[in-house]
Write a protein that binds this DNA or RNA. Structure first.
Lengths: 117, 117
DNA sequence: GACACATCACTCGGAATCCGATATAACGGA
DNA sequence: TCCGTTATATCGGATTCCGAGTGATGTGTC
């Protein structure tokens, strides 16, 4: 019996960014910070506090896992994290939830526009 | 010189839901709670603590305003809140930000699927 | 070699936020 | 009259955020 991804929703902004950063490929902590900054066009920056609080929580929840083996050519300090199957399900569910909200928002923003732009 | 909506991003989940609930029409506190529950299909429920913390913060930031006059037929206990022009801009900006993230996520979720479903 | 800067992991503690239990009271119907 | 719903609001503990700081190694430059 699988864990229900719905249980973990909604994701906080920080959590969503981290999970999303790991959706493309496995990354190490510092790499996650860089990817989040890149994704958001440097608008949103993740500090180490938020990052490690979240990594710990996400590992406990089984949404991400620490990867054992290293790549050969790598900086040995790096510790890599990977999105689990559950994690992928959680991300998919959260994206669906957000899309629903966005549909609603677009409708309202278009429908009620008391002042023209 | 206008306030820059970007300054307020990203919105927390609670804040986004509240602002979105006010995008369609002015609402009173209890009505916001109901609308948020309705919007999310009762998946996300806003308690009074989160609601009033947020209302106070949003008023200070000028994103929402308390509406003075009442509707005639109304329960006199109700206090109505309205989305300001700035608030509408913030919501628009946040929706755009989320859409960018969703595009990214959809791409990664489709592109990297190491295990078949 | 010396210096600076980037990479990399991580801790700490205060601030911000969440959020349900609780208080209070008016309303509406059985 | 009694009760459930509507309605506003506070309180305090729990959770989360988040940057400053620590420490170490890699990398490039003078």
């Amino acid at each position: 019996m699988r864990e229900d991804p719905q249980r973990f929703l909604p994701l906080s902004t920080a959590t969503l960014h981290i999970v999303l950063a790991l959706a493309g490929e496995d990354r190490h902590g510092y790499g996650i910070m860089q990817e989040v900054a890149r994704q958001s066009g440097a608008k949103y920056k993740l500090g180490p506090g938020t990052l490690y609080d979240n990594l710990q929580k996400l590992i406990e929840q089984g949404i991400i896992e620490e990867r054992g083996q290293k790549a050969d050519d790598d900086d040995p300090r790096r510790r890599y994290y990977r999105l689990s199957g559950l994690g992928r399900g959680v991300l998919t569910a959260e994206i669906a939830r957000l899309e629903g909200m966005i549909r609603d928002a677009r409708f309202h923003l278009r429908a009620s526009k008391p002042r023209r732009a």
